[in-house]
Nucleic acid binder design. Sequence first.
DNA 1: TTGACATGTGACCGTTTGTTCACTATACTG
DNA 2: CAGTATAGTGAACAAACGGTCACATGTCAA
Lengths: 205, 205
Amino acid sequence: MAKDTKERILALALDKFSQNGYDGTNIRELTSSLGLVKSALYRHFDSKEAIWNALLDEMIAYYEAGFGSSEHLPPVPDSLEGLVTLTMGMADFTIHDEKVVKTRKLLSIEQFRDERARDLATKHFLTGLTAMFTPLFQGMMDKGLLLRDDPAMLAFAYTAPISALIHLCDREPERTDEAIQRIEAFSRHFIRTYACQGGNTDETI
Amino acid sequence: MAKDTKERILALALDKFSQNGYDGTNIRELTSSLGLVKSALYRHFDSKEAIWNALLDEMIAYYEAGFGSSEHLPPVPDSLEGLVTLTMGMADFTIHDEKVVKTRKLLSIEQFRDERARDLATKHFLTGLTAMFTPLFQGMMDKGLLLRDDPAMLAFAYTAPISALIHLCDREPERTDEAIQRIEAFSRHFIRTYACQGGNTDETI
DNA sequence: TTGACATGTGACCGTTTGTTCACTATACTG
DNA sequence: CAGTATAGTGAACAAACGGTCACATGTCAA
């Protein structure tokens, strides 16, 4: 009940900050939710802002080690249906994993006030998704599954609408089922549009 | 210099709230920026929260009267290039109009704390855009400009990526030019994908 | 046992917060 | 002219804020 206090503080800070924002969260409420008194917090962090910075450090490290890591790229699907399956699996995780949801909400709230939060938000919401799907689409084109096109543009056109629906889940959790259905519908519409009609031999433009 | 104080307060509240959030904004700083003393504010609003509610009222009314109004729908473009032109005009406005930018930022910050902000955020970021472009795409299909498809799905697939780039401008204004170029590139890629080949398309892209 | 270290406590501090109130100055109205 | 809203002032308020400090524990090594 000693060493993990720091991690418990960080976990609860993520919870509170993602709900009420940094300014809307006070130390007393945070620590009392942990069964502590506010002064005890200062054994683990120098200040409230130090909590924020440590939380950002952790969020950045967590992202770089996971979604942002080029070594953890999912394998290129072997079929169009495989893209749908992969997409829905990733969507299911990112929508239901509490830590990831809270991270996104926190970044939405604080993106305009903290430069590092801003940069991480851009990765979470835009560039990271595109970077992850670009090689996937490149691979699917090489396999003759998708029409030859700019893979980065396709990745952007594919991930941005899905990202918008993930944001909808964050904002209105009661519409999660609807959003997931729309993600799948969009995914199927996308592959219907870009499916390579001919065989699985790659063709030149 | 009397009656418009209320409006000046609201305008500055939008500015401050969209930068620092509701909790991160204090009455003294807000009123002193107007050349007033804090107590003067209470001649016009009962409380800080009353300012917030009035601001939301105004934001909702402004949206319903403008973007959200079905009577202000733009005309159906007569050509594929017309869609690009229309899109870039709307993007240019929504990216550079200060009031609209501040409104989006404020909604991003407060969407998880206030139900009305949440609902307006969904309109601004998702449903409103789709609702606006659905009849446009329907019309362009009727004119034989676009391949027949689900217009609502196309509107969603078209507006969500553009919305993501608009958010990028809000977050990183120094990347505005890059974002605008990407919006145009995406728009042209989109019409290249969905253009009706045999119709009365006037040119190749 | 002793001493050092890490952890938690409760009282306290100075500052900032939103808000109130008696008062003044100006402007319109009968 | 008197009278009455309207708008702004400056001092004061209680509450809440982040943070500090002397002190009380518990643990573990020497």
